[in-house]
Design a protein around this nucleic acid. Structure first.
Lengths: 199, 199
DNA sequence: TCAGTTGGCCAACACTTGTTGACCAAGCGA
DNA sequence: TCGCTTGGTCAACAAGTGTTGGCCAACTGA
């Protein structure tokens, strides 16, 4: 048959690809090694041999690099737009992050993984543009909450109004929010006569 | 022993209470009928007799009334504050909504349930304060995305900066966002010199 | 040629899960 | 007193899970 005796590293990659897709679509618990193996046209035991356990397979599949741009090289008033665009594009093209988010909903270990991604990548990338270093993590977390909220509504809950919006509309609405969280002087700029962002 | 032969409706309620707590903390898949029964000091088969199946038990446990206030009776510039406060209080006191959110992450049926709650309660409550009826669902969805993002960060991912904020701080930061989504004239008010909300 | 490595499959184990059906006993109305 | 409803337990079934170990066959290098 098509017993082409694939190259090992090759099958490993194929397993990983299928696993990412399954984890992204169904979450950790509802994804079975058997299903992954079946779709990768391979025996379940091979998955174990390559990755050791389902846990380790997930960890390998969920290695995430947000590839966030250097925000200091971007005009202040385009930070929000840049970030929103970046994330929506990322979600649309690669399900890995969504897989992790889904799992985090029911698995503390995955939540911990998200926390470390937040701390190591989001908070770090965002800190330089914060007006007050002590508040930087808080600002980053607020921005993350809005971005993740969009991801939740668009890809997990599939709320029609959010799904129907194209990227530009989402950016137009959400970017100002991100800008305010990251760079506004106080918490409630919209309630004072003063302007937001660059004075 | 303590075979007090409870009143039936009473045990039913106790099962429901335990179930809500388990679903909220661990999600649907990781919650077992056996664990619920055990904690309710009852036989697993009783759960089936009362609720038919695990699915139906969840449905019964996840019947949610957001108890949203009538926004038309509230000053325009306090809508955001009111909503944020309402939701955070609700999440803090009752895990039912979080249970549903958790399950929605991996179960399309639960996601559908969230959509119907959104449509029947959130979108409906929020529509009257929208300046343009055709955009009302979109505005409601954006507000929901931010609110759910906070829930995600605070209760599911347990992002430290969000957990550390007290209700007042969260309200101070997020309320303006909600206000803008619901009532701002255009999508990007922060980028124009004009003011937001009540002119 | 021949031994070792490598990619792969098969069958089974051990366990957990939701679910079912038989049986029991306390209370209650006639 | 008898029979029916009701709250309850127990033991098992059937299915699905991650995981393991044994075996096979192709390739590779000496």
């Amino acid at each position: 048959m098509a017993d082409t005796r694939r190259s090992g590293a090759e099958t490993r990659e194929r397993i990983l690809a299928v696993a990412r897709e399954h984890f992204a679509r169904q979450g950790f618990d509802r994804t079975t090694i058997r299903a992954i193996a079946s779709e990768a046209q391979i025996d379940p035991s091979m998955v174990m041999r390559y990755f050791g356990s389902k846990e380790e397979l997930f960890t390998a599949a969920a290695a995430i690099d947000l590839a966030l741009p250097d925000l200091t090289e971007i005009p202040r008033d385009e930070v929000g737009r840049t970030l929103v665009t970046h994330f929506v594009r990322m979600w649309d093209s690669d399900g890995t992050l969504m897989a992790l988010l889904r799992r985090a909903a029911s698995d503390p270990a995955a939540a911990e993984q998200m926390r470390s991604i937040f701390a190591a990548q989001v908070a770090r990338a965002v800190a330089p543009v914060s007006p007050d270093p002590s508040q930087a993590p808080r600002r980053a977390a607020l921005a993350a909450s809005q971005l993740l909220g969009i991801a939740l509504g668009r890809y997990v809950l599939v709320l029609p109004p959010i799904v129907d919006m194209d990227i530009d509309e989402i950016v137009a609405w959400v970017a100002p929010t991100i800008d305010r969280y990251l760079t506004a002087e106080s918490a409630q700029p919209d309630q004072d006569p003063g302007r937001v962002g660059s004075s």
